[in-house]
Design a protein around this nucleic acid. Structure first.
Lengths: 138, 138
DNA sequence: ACAATAAATGCACTTCCATTGCATTGGTTA
DNA sequence: TAACCAATGCAATGGAAGTGCATTTATTGT
């Protein structure tokens, strides 16, 4: 078990206090978060720093971006099993219409999608919307 | 074969010059368009009018909205076979990373997606990204 | 045909998120 | 320790979505 510091360094990400905090915040969250979510969690930090930190994490492939159709970009840590750097690795995101949370269903792989002749598929974005387990249990 | 006027009236949409123009514009396009696309096509018209016209078309279910992950909402006319008013009717959208166009693949239905226990699926958004037939033929 | 009514349009404005430029701070390295 | 480069913070911009209100246009009833 590596420390977070070691992990970040192994990904060529310089370790700073802010980055550690943001990484921990993402790690605690089980759902994808927006920039504003992070902003609200760290009122002291500047929005730009958070933005650029996330972008750095994205470039270094420890975070991936999720477009769940709410119009606001969300981000989540890549987990074991998430090979989002491999374009053909496709997993599912679930957006709850009730609590508005978006969850990575890393273990749910997407079936191969057929496209018409002449089309080349490089990437697939699949978002299922509905009611999540927490909300449906109410 | 109904005229456009008759068609709009059958959907309880009042016919105006602007609406006819916008409808024809959408009908000519084989791809989904953004509000800005429409705006550029009709420089005389106000953006608000275009915006509200599209919203009206959407409400009356002759246009559907597409979220292709570019961050900009696109719209396309519903075609025969597109029953987008039925939430379980799901068809595929293809976004070309080369020409940036988004196409409705109405005839390609989405396979049933399994979600974990406790999750209720109401709606699915599936966008395949890659290279379209026109661009791949180059 | 005309007045009353309702819908459509146009203009101005606001909000929200994403993104960039630039100056400053802070950490690394020669 | 000086020089350098990356990270941070502040300010500002841009783009898209959405709203309020006044005006124009169309519809309806008398």
């Amino acid at each position: 078990m590596k420390t977070i510091e070691e992990f970040l360094e192994s990904k060529n990400i310089r370790v700073t206090a802010m980055r550690l905090l943001i990484y921990k915040f993402l790690a605690e969250k089980l759902v994808a978060v927006t920039l504003s979510d992070i902003e609200n969690a760290f009122e002291k930090a500047d929005r730009t720093t958070l933005y650029r930190t996330i972008k750095t994490f994205e470039e270094k492939e420890i975070v991936h971006q999720i477009d769940d159709g709410t119009g606001i970009t969300k981000y989540a840590l890549c987990e074991k099993g998430c090979n989002c750097e491999i374009e053909t690795d496709l997993h599912l995101h679930f957006h709850c219409n009730n609590c508005n949370e978006t969850i990575c269903l890393t273990e749910h792989k997407i079936p191969q999608i057929k496209v018409p002749d002449g089309f080349v598929s490089e990437n697939v974005n699949l978002v299922v919307k509905g009611i999540c387990d927490k909300c449906s249990g109410q």
